[in-house]
Write a protein that binds this DNA or RNA. Structure first.
Length: 245
DNA sequence: GCGACAG
DNA sequence: ATCTTGTCGC
């Protein structure tokens, strides 16, 4: 399907209009399929945001291939709205789209810091970006916004995944697997634990493909490399733009 | 009304 | 997200 500039998250006036746009985004999104390109040949993007202060948002995007950065892009904008749970795309989306637009390579897939299908209307930031840009996207969140793990996720081993089912707060059938808790890294035998990531399909791929890709792109760190690189760029840039140090 | 709530 | 010290593990 084609890109949908008409669903760009910028300049949407009210929460009610945002909610309606998300419903269209969810209807347009495709939560199935997989990435066929071998991991070594895959051009994977990552995008993340940081905030020097309340009136400024920094978005960084990177393109990676087989572990090395091909290109990066950083933009600074003013957020259109404050943080509202469930409407992150309207706060961080415009800056993210601008940053991704600054990348020269064509992305085979984009890893996003936030949810995809794990969202009340199945239209998280990753889904919104995927539909607007028409590229496969994966949502990677550090905490669970909605849905329910089918079993405890307290101390999973590296590589383990646990299905996340829709709950009453999600606009789909309760038996639908909307994502996975993914343990990309774990301490061996100790009293210390690392929490899993909450991975969901953004667009043009299924939940299992999203989880497998996240594991494949995560080596020695908790976050998949493209997101980790983007996070580092955004955080550093925000620190430089911040008053004081 | 109260608590929950991606970043 | 950002504000912050120490602490644990590899």
């Amino acid at each position: 399907m084609p890109p949908r500039p008409d669903l760009h998250p910028g300049e949407v006036e009210t929460i009610d209009l945002m909610r309606r746009m998300q419903e269209t985004v969810a209807e347009t999104a495709r939560f199935e399929g997989s990435i066929d390109t071998p991991i070594a040949d895959l051009t994977a993007g990552g995008v993340d945001q940081a905030f020097p202060h309340a009136e400024c948002i920094v978005s960084a995007a990177v393109a990676e291939r087989d572990g090395s950065v091909l290109d990066d892009s950083i933009v600074t904008q003013k957020p259109a709205i404050g943080y509202v749970p469930g409407y992150l795309a309207f706060r961080e989306g415009p800056a993210a789209i601008a940053a991704i637009g600054g990348l020269a390579p064509t992305l085979d897939v984009l890893m996003v810091d936030g949810n995809g299908r794990i969202h009340p209307r199945q239209a998280g930031l990753a889904t919104h970006l995927g539909v607007v840009l028409d590229i496969p996207t994966v949502g990677v969140a550090k905490s669970l916004l909605c849905g329910r793990p089918i079993e405890p996720i307290d101390d999973l081993d590296t590589g383990e995944i646990v299905p996340i089912y829709a709950d009453e707060s999600v606009d789909t059938d309760s038996e639908t697997i909307i994502g996975y808790a993914v343990q990309t890294r774990q301490y061996d035998a100790t009293d210390r634990h690392i929490n899993p990531l909450f991975v969901s399909p953004g667009h043009d791929l299924g939940a299992m493909a999203a989880a497998e890709l996240t594991l494949a792109l995560s080596d020695r760190y908790k976050l998949p490399s493209p997101i980790r690189q983007a996070d580092r760029l955004a955080t550093d840039q925000a620190a430089m733009q911040r008053p004081k140090g």
